[in-house]
Nucleic acid binder design. Structure first.
Lengths: 132, 132
DNA sequence: GTAGTACTTTATAATGATTCTAAAAAGGTG
DNA sequence: CACCTTTTTAGAATCATTATAAAGTACTAC
């Protein structure tokens, strides 16, 4: 299986559940945005075994920590994740409550002029809210 | 009282509670970031009357809708608000879990090249995550 | 392969922020 | 003041997320 090494290399045991979640998350043409609830539904559709909600939470957090998923900073009652881990940004359509990718090339270069002593920049994320 | 007109002009009755919350939010030299819990604490310290938590929620949402407060897009278990409603951005210190204002001038001009049909840009918000 | 250990999964309970409810209180108008 | 509408309130309800602790599984050494 193609995800066994990936998991092992990052110190995660390649359990059946994790491999199945990898299939759902990473085995698709396009990257996508999801909430835990979205993912739970998707798993129910695509996987015949049942995976407990707690495991889904654990796995998503583990994958995020390892850098296989990114959280999308947005105010919502649920946390949004992205399988696109490249450096990029988002549109947020307020009416449809939908996220749309915004590649780095679609945003001019961003230069943060202010420096904070002893801290370094980990990421720069742009959220563009859209209305009709 | 200086906030009576402000409230009346936006169609909100100037109740005792709303005026007191205005004092706490807007009667300070500097703008600040807060969660509902932060605000609740601040009110308890500064105001002798008790204001119910439900009223604080109602009022903050009403003020946000009227444009007197802004939500800060950030993934957290609590919603962060800002009394600084000018067009600006934020640093987020991951370790200290603290927000720091980033004026527009501290960020180079941002040019969103991609257009979405039938939608217009309402806001562009930048979140810069900081680590040690 | 087996034994031992550490990690993982699981169902369920607990937590905690936010929203809902419906009754009491207060503001606004004539 | 009398009336109607808006607002406040305490407490209950909701819902995403996290904690718990027992059972199951992966890995390592022999």
């Amino acid at each position: 299986m193609k995800y066994i090494e990936k998991l092992r290399n990052s110190g995660l045991r390649p359990t059946k559940q994790r491999l199945q979640i990898c299939e759902v998350l990473f085995n698709s043409e396009k990257t996508f945005h999801f909430t835990i609830n979205d993912l739970d539904q998707k798993i129910k559709k695509q996987i015949s075994d049942k995976i407990s909600l707690a495991t889904i939470y654990n796995t998503v957090h583990a994958f995020e920590k390892k850098g296989y998923l990114k959280q999308i900073p947005i105010n919502s009652n649920q946390i949004y994740f992205d399988t696109n881990i490249s450096d990029h940004h988002h549109f947020y359509d307020l009416k449809e409550e939908k996220l749309i990718d915004l590649e780095n090339a679609d945003v001019g270069p961003i230069n943060i002029l202010k420096k904070i002593n002893g801290k370094k920049i980990k990421s720069v994320e742009v959220l563009v809210k859209l209305e009709d």
